[in-house]
């Protein structure tokens, strides 16, 4: 469980980035964090894994204060996927890269081997690839694999799909969703892409100027256009359209649901009012 308790954060001699922020994320949840550029999303994600420490207030991970826990200990529990995979890839082959995180954590040699081969299969990667010359999508997949191979309880994704094509994006998100469902991996995802958020997240936190503007189930936030506007994000198209059509369309979120609802309306006669 991740808990922010009256977290205040600022760099010296600048106005506070996070004035006073409180929320909790339960185990097994899939939370999307959205907000405009400079709203403090990256700061929140870095506070959550102890890379930044709150100026005042507390960030608790399973009850342990990040201020008194070593970052290397936090890293065993919380994985972090950066927007730019090139910042973490540092080994000559994909196999070594995947094994690196485990070796750092002192996992025995044989288990390292077994888990590496398993991850290579899961992410359809070739262990002998030279990682630096692979495509952007493959590098991001390598980075994600080397984060998830450590089997963290929680993973923070900082705009994980920027610069990926649709197929690569779906591949990564589907894998994370499966882990979330099957192993109870907690996910905190920072994103600008509302289609992605609607498709995968269960709960949405909306951040503006370091303050929580909205916090609720994804279905609720998707229909609250004023909040989305404040967060400077483009609403997901189907829910926004459904909102125009009034009450009969209130449970419509996906293309399939929209198609079904439109057909039903056409049968009854007359366009949706």
């Amino acid at each position: 469980m991740l808990a922010f308790e009256h977290v205040h954060f600022e760099y010296p001699e600048t106005p506070p980035i996070i004035p006073d922020l409180s929320f909790t994320i339960g185990d097994g949840d899939f939370v999307a964090l959205i907000g405009s550029n400079g709203a403090g999303k990256s700061t929140v994600s870095r506070l959550a894994n102890g890379l930044l420490l709150p100026t005042s207030g507390k960030v608790l991970l399973d009850g342990a204060d990040t201020r008194t826990t070593r970052t290397s200990a936090i890293a065993r529990k919380v994985g972090f996927l950066f927007q730019n995979p090139d910042r973490q890839i540092c080994q000559n082959t994909v196999r070594e890269e995947l094994a690196f995180g485990l070796k750092v954590q002192g996992v025995p040699e044989e288990e390292v081997k077994a888990r590496t081969e398993e991850a290579l299969r899961d992410f359809s990667l070739d262990g002998d690839w030279f990682p630096f010359t692979r495509s952007r999508g493959e590098r991001q997949r390598i980075a994600l694999a080397s984060v998830l191979i450590c089997r963290p309880k929680m993973v923070i994704l900082d705009e994980p799909t920027t610069g990926l094509d649709y197929k690569e994006c779906i591949a990564i998100m589907d894998y994370i969703t499966r882990l979330n469902r099957e192993t109870g991996l907690t996910v905190l995802m920072v994103s600008h892409d509302m289609e992605l958020v609607q498709q995968y997240a269960k709960r949405v936190l909306v951040l503006t100027n370091g303050q929580l503007q909205g916090d609720g189930p994804v279905t609720e936030i998707m229909k609250d256009l004023s909040i989305l506007e404040k967060a400077h994000v483009r609403p997901a198209q189907i829910p926004a359209l459904a909102l125009r059509f009034g009450d009969r369309f209130k449970d419509v979120y996906t293309v399939d649901e929209m198609a079904a609802a439109l057909k039903a309306a056409a049968k009854k006669g007359g366009a949706p009012a």
Partner: peptide, 15 residues
């Protein structure tokens, strides 16, 4: 600094 953060987040013990 960003790279250091990324490696710290993987559990490399710079502390």
């Amino acid at each position: 600094h960003d790279i250091e953060d990324a490696q710290k987040a993987r559990g490399v013990e710079y502390d």
